[in-house]
């Protein structure tokens, strides 16, 4: 385990932000910390990256303790925070060389590294321009490039795609996948289930400062039930007949029945055929993919109570 966090607690004044978080990340994998705003994602990342100290609990990164061996930890990690951290009045290249120098590469090595990264992130044409002239997507790319200067073993990305347009988001996802293929460990936070799904090997769902669920993407999805077909009927008698037909539990809306689905056209055909053969008229069919909201709903409506503040 390259990241090993146990029993993290953190409070700001009387506000409990983390209430016993455990995380284990295997080297070379992508780990997603998924949760809504205010769940404690950023606080966790700040503790893991030595920027903040836990009140209780401990973290080891690559075997080094984040509090007692902060400098050693900083030598093997990099952080890309939520807000882009670049000097607007320096050029893209100057920004990269500066980080290289601060990572104690010699001047020629820092320059070589900057050139490599500018090529890799398609910023060569803009490298001599000041960052203030860059577009939002270019700034994000340069920001990610800044975290790669030191060739870190663990890269922390705090909401790397929040606020990006769909095409920049895809570019960012590709860049992240590239990193994984070179063996780097990635810990990212996100509010989007889809993003975690696309990128992560393991997901930890965090809510109200506690781990609400953890596992592989598939395991988590099966926990919330995966895709669903919602069938709307005209009268409740029809709903009752459909319940018998598919053996599905009723939902909150008395005229709607949700059926677990694999999302395929085949399954939709079978369901509609079954209804036609049984002579149950269906008014409307919609397919439904689980969202982060569903995940939380299903996890918080069970036995978990939110943290008292």
């Amino acid at each position: 385990m390259i990241v090993e966090a146990t029993g993290l607690h953190k409070a700001f004044g009387s506000t409990k932000v983390l209430d016993g978080v455990d995380l284990h990340v295997a080297e070379g994998t992508v780990f997603a910390l998924l949760g809504p705003n205010g769940a404690g994602k950023t606080t966790t990342i700040r503790i893991l990256t030595t920027l903040s100290r836990p009140d209780l609990g401990s973290v080891r990164i690559a075997g080094y303790d984040v509090v007692r061996e902060a400098t050693k930890v900083r030598g093997v990690i990099s952080l890309t925070g939520q807000s882009v951290a670049l000097d607007d009045q320096q050029t893209g290249r100057e920004n990269l060389v500066m980080i290289g120098r601060l990572m104690h590469l010699g001047r020629p090595a820092a320059r070589r590294r900057a050139t490599d990264l500018l090529e890799r992130f398609d910023l060569v044409d803009a490298m001599k321009r000041r960052v203030k002239t860059y577009s939002g997507g270019m700034r994000r790319r340069l920001d990610l490039a800044m975290s790669l200067v030191s060739q870190p073993r663990v890269i922390f990305l705090d909401e790397p795609t929040t606020g990006l347009d769909p095409s920049s988001r895809t570019t960012m996802w590709d860049a992240i996948k590239d990193l994984v293929s070179s063996g780097t460990t990635i810990v990212l936070t996100t509010q989007y289930l889809e993003e975690a799904d696309r990128l992560a090997d393991r997901i930890v769902l965090i809510n109200g400062g506690k781990v609400a669920a953890s596992g592989t993407t598939d395991a988590l999805k099966s926990q919330v039930g995966g895709d669903r077909l919602d069938l709307r009927f005209a009268v409740e008698a029809d709903v009752a007949r459909a319940v018998a037909l598919f053996d599905a539990p009723r939902g909150t809306d008395p005229l709607v029945l949700g059926i677990p689905s694999d999302g395929s056209a085949d399954h939709l055909h079978r369901v509609l055929d079954d209804l036609r053969i049984a002579g149950v008229p269906v008014v409307k069919v919609s397919s439904h993919r689980p969202t982060l909201d569903d995940v939380f709903l299903s996890l918080t409506t069970t036995d978990r109570t939110p943290v008292q503040v």
Binding site: T50, L51, L79, G81, Q82, S83, A85, I99, L102
Partner: peptide, 13 residues
């Protein structure tokens, strides 16, 4: 007040 200080502080300097 920008993200710069976090970036610098997460470096081994």
């Amino acid at each position: 007040t920008s993200g710069m200080i976090d970036r610098l502080r997460s470096l081994p300097i």
